[in-house]
Structure formats: C-alpha cells, structure tokens
C-alpha cells in the first residue's frame, strides 16, 4: 500500500504549474450569496428562506415557545426531540408543548439509538448562525448534532436576530465556526430532488417541512 511519504513524493516530482497567487480577501468580488448594501439581514434571510420553501415566522422572544408548539400541532408531530442549542428557549418550548399535550425528548438521548432517531416526527433546534443572503441555517455537531436538522419530516429552527450574518464571507471569516465540533452544516430549506423528469419533490431524505423562527432583537 502507498504511504503518505511516497504518495506526496510522487506528486512533488511533477513540474510546477503557473501560480497566480491567492487572491486577497479584501477585494473579493460580489456574489449572489452576499448581502447588498443597505439590506436588512433579517428581511433578506426571510426572503431567501421563503424562496427555498422554508416557512418563516418573525416573532419576539416571548412568542417563540407558542409558535414552535403550534407548528408541532399543525404538523401532527408526536415523537419530538429538542437539541441543546435551542437554549435559552428549551424550558419555555417544553412548557408550551405540554400545554398542547405534547412531550419532547432531548435529541442526544434519542440519537444514541438510530432506530429511535429515525422514527422522530419532528426536531426543534437552535443554530450557531443563519446566513441572510443564502437563506441558510448553520448548525453544528456540538449543538444540533449532525443529523438533528434533517432526521425527521419536520424541522423547526429558532434563530436569534444577533445570530444572523450577512453573507457567506462573514460566516467563514467570523469565529462562530470555531466551536462547531466535528461538523458544521448549512441547510437551506426542505430536502429536495428533481431527479425524476425534473419534477420538484420536497422531503426526499430530509424534512419536507422546514420552519424558521426568527426572534426579533429585544
């Protein structure tokens, strides 16, 4: 079997191509995934998320729990898990759920058994950031887990206004990814496929219903 040294040596033995140098980040050109001048982050996030078939709810901190509970009722979800990055809303959400006659487990307890995780109807997660210009929720292995956002047919994600970054440049230049753990992930709307004759189908392997709850600043 080839080892690291001989593998790299074979590559190093080739002639070196033209190197134009790595571009400087500061004069990076505009991309569709950047915020335009004067745009409001939360408004753009809502617009992009809705364009990707996400249902967006704009609420104050006091209404988060009730909104989450009503989505769970609407989607007829019974087996529900919450991830720890939902803090500081975990207790409120659990209280609102019990008013609605629902109970939720903590995802970490469910996830240790794949069969249980696979049978969930809904997950409720927080996130480590949201990207306004791409309409994306950014989750981490340390928080929502790797599969917490897409294991169940319904995913509800709560994002606080201060967690919204403008575009992909801000996300990758910021320090929010440093504590993500073994994985960070962007998800932008429901799971989709158009493999069969270009007919768009939502909810292929991941959720068909994605709800984004944007919490206004205090």
């Amino acid at each position: 079997m080839t080892d690291r040294a001989s593998f790299l040596a074979a590559i190093r033995s080739t002639p070196r191509g033209l190197d134009p140098g790595l571009p400087d980040r500061r004069d990076a050109p505009d991309a569709p995934t950047q915020l335009r001048e004067g745009e409001n982050r939360a408004d753009r996030l809502q617009a992009e998320a809705e364009a990707a078939s996400t249902v967006v709810h704009r609420v104050t901190a006091n209404d988060v729990a009730a909104t989450v509970a009503s989505v769970l009722v609407e989607t007829n979800s019974q087996r529900i898990a919450l991830t720890t990055d939902l803090a500081p809303f975990v207790e409120d959400v659990q209280a609102a759920m019990s008013v609605a006659g629902l109970t939720g487990s903590i995802y970490a307890e469910v996830a240790s058994n794949r069969a249980q995780a696979g049978a969930l109807d809904a997950t409720v997660t927080g996130c480590i950031a949201a990207v306004a210009a791409s309409g994306s929720i950014v989750t981490s292995a340390a928080g929502a887990g790797r599969a917490g956002a897409l294991i169940a047919p319904t995913h509800i994600c709560v994002v606080r206004d201060e967690q919204i970054v403008g575009g992909l440049h801000e996300l990758f230049d910021g320090d929010v990814l440093a504590e993500a753990g073994s994985l960070f992930a962007l998800q932008s709307g429901p799971s989709r496929s158009a493999d069969i004759e270009k007919v768009l189908i939502l909810g292929v392997h991941g959720p068909g219903n994605v709800h984004l709850v944007i919490v206004a600043p205090d």
Binding site: P32, T33, E48, A51, A52, A133, S134, G135, S136, A141, R146, L150, S182, L183, F184, A185, L186, Q187, S188, G189, P190, S191, R192, G206
Partner: peptide, 12 residues
C-alpha cells in the same frame, strides 16, 4: 440554486 440545500463540512 442560490445554494445547495445541504452543505456539510466535517473533520474527523
């Protein structure tokens, strides 16, 4: 698309 629905970045 503006961005692919799922972008997963893992290390280890």
């Amino acid at each position: 698309q503006q961005i692919t629905t799922y972008v997963s970045v893992s290390a280890g």
